[in-house]
Simulated scan of single mutants.
Amino acid sequence: MTDIAIVDYGMGNLRSVHKALEHIAPDSTVVVTSDPAVVNKASRVVVPGQGAMPNCMSELKACGLQDAVIRAAHSKPFLGICIGLQMLFEESEEGHVKGLDILPGRVIHFPVKTMTTPEGLKLKVPHMGWNQVCQTVNHPLWKDIAKDARFYFVHSYYVDTPDTALIAAQTHYPFAFTCAVAKDNIFAVQFHPEKSHIAGLTLLRNFATWSPGF
């Protein structure tokens, strides 16, 4: 049986995620797969994603992986990364596309015209680079990670959810936005742990040993 399945629907930075997981879990079987049967049988599932949300959702369906991802999100340790976070929600402004509707909320674009610092300096969109992640809950995946650790971001859209209980961390750019969510067996992040050095590897190591209660 596969210990950790990384879902390949043609839209993720899979090599970096794969190498990072192999590094932190050398005794686990880590595979990149586009086979729904492998995803169904895996003990843990990681869904990364980069690019445009409409393309990601379209490719997920075209590859026959949508149902397998939904089942995984309801039944086993599940980690979403970047668009792997965004697709969990109801819909996205990007292309006005429907998400998987597993969690309540929308994915919205940074308001470009008002993206300025308190000093009036213009902030760039996409939000790209290192930024502090302020943890808002105690969670097993935050174990041994400083409460204001820095992680690497590349995105123009962020999650807006009415369910504040889902929020596991926030980042400021230039306002506070949700950058991590957690519910039951689901943990998902807007940043890229596979590109975030020690803090990111620690989060992935925590995921590889996480036993969520149902």
Rank of each mutant, 00 (worst) to 15 (best):
V47D: 12
P48W: 00
H109N: 10
E91N: 10
M115D: 14
I108Y: 04
A68K: 02
E59W: 03
E93S: 14
F89C: 02
E93P: 13
M115K: 03
T114S: 04
A62E: 13
L100W: 11
G99A: 04
K113G: 05
L85S: 01
L79Q: 00
Q86P: 00
V47M: 15
H74S: 09
L60S: 07
S58N: 13
I81F: 11
H96L: 12
R106K: 13
E90K: 06
L79G: 03
S75P: 03
R106S: 15
K61V: 07
V47Y: 02
G84C: 04
I70N: 02
M87F: 01
V107T: 11
V97P: 03
G80L: 11
K76P: 15
H74N: 08
E93I: 05
A73N: 13
L60N: 11
G95H: 08
T114K: 06
E91M: 12
L100Q: 05
F110H: 05
G84T: 00
H96W: 01
V47Q: 07
C82K: 00
C63E: 03
F78M: 08
Q66G: 04
A68Q: 05
P54F: 12
M53P: 01
A72S: 08
G99S: 07
C82P: 03
S92E: 14
E59I: 00
M87I: 10
G49E: 08
M53N: 09
R71M: 06
I83D: 00
P54W: 04
D67I: 11
K98Y: 10
K98T: 14
P104T: 11
V69P: 02
V107Y: 01
E94K: 05
N55P: 00
K113Y: 06
L88Q: 08
N55S: 09
G64A: 08
V47S: 15
Q86F: 15
A72V: 06
C56A: 09
R106T: 15
P77C: 11
M87G: 10
G84R: 12
M87Q: 11
R71K: 05
L88G: 09
A72K: 06
T116M: 15
A72W: 14
V112G: 03
F78V: 14
T114N: 10
G105L: 13
I81A: 04
F89L: 09
E59D: 13
K98C: 15
E94L: 05
L88W: 06
V69D: 12
E93H: 14
S92F: 01
E94F: 10
N55A: 11
A62I: 00
T114W: 11
P111I: 03
P104F: 14
L79V: 04
E94N: 04
I81K: 01
G95S: 09
M87N: 03
E90L: 07
Q66K: 12
H96Q: 10
N55I: 00
I102V: 13
P48Y: 04
A72N: 10
R71G: 03
Q50D: 06
I83R: 08
L65Q: 07
K76W: 06
G49P: 13
D67C: 02
M57G: 08
A62R: 15
H74P: 00
C63R: 15
V112T: 14
L60H: 04
L65D: 13
E90M: 12
P48F: 01
I83H: 09
A68S: 12
G105C: 08
I108K: 12
E59M: 05
I81L: 05
L100V: 10
M53T: 03
H74F: 08
I102G: 04
P111V: 00
H109C: 01
L100D: 14
F89T: 11
L60F: 00
